[in-house]
């Protein structure tokens, strides 16, 4: 593994990158809901087209987007195959009938729809959230969106701070793990051969130093935060205050129009039954 990239954030300069993280979280939710609202071929075409537009607007290279889809290719194929074989359609739409296997046109359609739905969902949520929003922005956005819960005495700020720290320390811990593994490899430790038991045992020389350094870091961080008078969320202001701009409202309006379009197309299927 060469180099570590935290999450999948892809730095680029696009409208979507500049959106308010709160809006992006809402947009991602709307998009996922829309993908489930789609019922007929026209709405699915609209959904698929919108995914392509999103990729183009966000300036994320296609290669990167495909990489994240590759991870779920098995789930897509599995659900598609299930839909092909297990959808029962109108008798006149029977395509293949062999022993107990019956394939209907509806099954084929359903399989295609489900794949389009999954792909769009993944593209939509990752374009709005993971690719274009840094993890820190994302937790900031979540904190703000959940802040009404503070009235119910939910420690929203504390949760967000814990999440931020956890995210911040992932690359550090990964780097530390690699360093310790290298150091032990240099002393002849072998992590990649032998039985499962032997490999588990080989991890002891990595895990002990890793835990010790994680605790040391946690202690250091607590001291550093105390030194800077951190005392939780009460009365605390932000260095960067999230502010919705015109583009954020425009995007909300666009997504509202998109949702309306999907609903309308679902109702008026232009006399086409699929």
């Amino acid at each position: 593994m060469k180099g570590i990239v935290l999450g999948q954030y892809y730095p680029a300069d696009s409208v979507i990158h500049r959106l308010d993280p709160r809006i992006k979280i809402i947009l991602a939710l709307i998009y996922i809901v829309c993908s489930f609202l789609c019922r007929n071929i026209f709405s699915f075409v609209l959904l698929f087209m919108s995914s392509i537009v999103l990729i183009l607007v966000s300036r994320i290279p296609l290669k990167i987007v495909f990489r994240s889809l590759r991870a779920i290719i098995f789930i897509m194929l599995f659900t598609a195959v299930l839909n092909v074989f297990w959808t029962k359609g109108e008798p006149e739409n029977l395509l293949v009938s062999w022993k107990f296997i019956n394939i209907y046109t509806e099954g084929i359609y359903n399989a295609v729809f489900i794949v389009v739905r999954i792909v769009s969902m993944i593209i939509g949520s990752s374009i709005f959230m993971t690719y274009t929003t840094t993890p820190i922005q994302l937790t900031d956005g979540i904190e703000r969106l959940l802040s009404p819960l503070k009235k119910l005495h939910v420690p929203v700020h504390e949760f967000a701070m814990m999440m931020t720290i956890a995210l911040r320390f992932i690359p550090i811990i990964v780097e530390e793990t690699q360093k310790i593994m290298s150091a032990q490899k240099a002393r002849g430790a072998d992590f990649s051969s032998g039985s499962l038991m032997k490999r588990a045992k080989a991890l002891v020389p990595v895990l002990i130093p890793l835990f010790i350094s994680a605790f040391r870091r946690a202690g250091d961080l607590a001291t550093a935060m105390t030194c800077r008078c951190y005392r939780g969320g009460k009365g605390r202001t932000k260095m960067t205050v999230l502010k919705c701009r015109a583009r954020d409202y425009v995007m909300l309006a666009v997504s509202a129009a998109f949702t309306a379009a999907v609903v309308v197309i679902n109702i008026y299927s232009f006399g086409y039954t699929m």
Partner: peptide, 26 residues
């Protein structure tokens, strides 16, 4: 033999003796 930066963070055995013996044992 490579001694990495801050090699003290690689120590893990119960005694110093056992830790020095880790490489030769391997």
């Amino acid at each position: 033999g490579l001694v990495m930066q801050y090699p003290e963070y690689q120590l893990f055995e119960e005694t110093v003796k056992a830790d020095i013996a880790f490489g030769p044992k391997n």
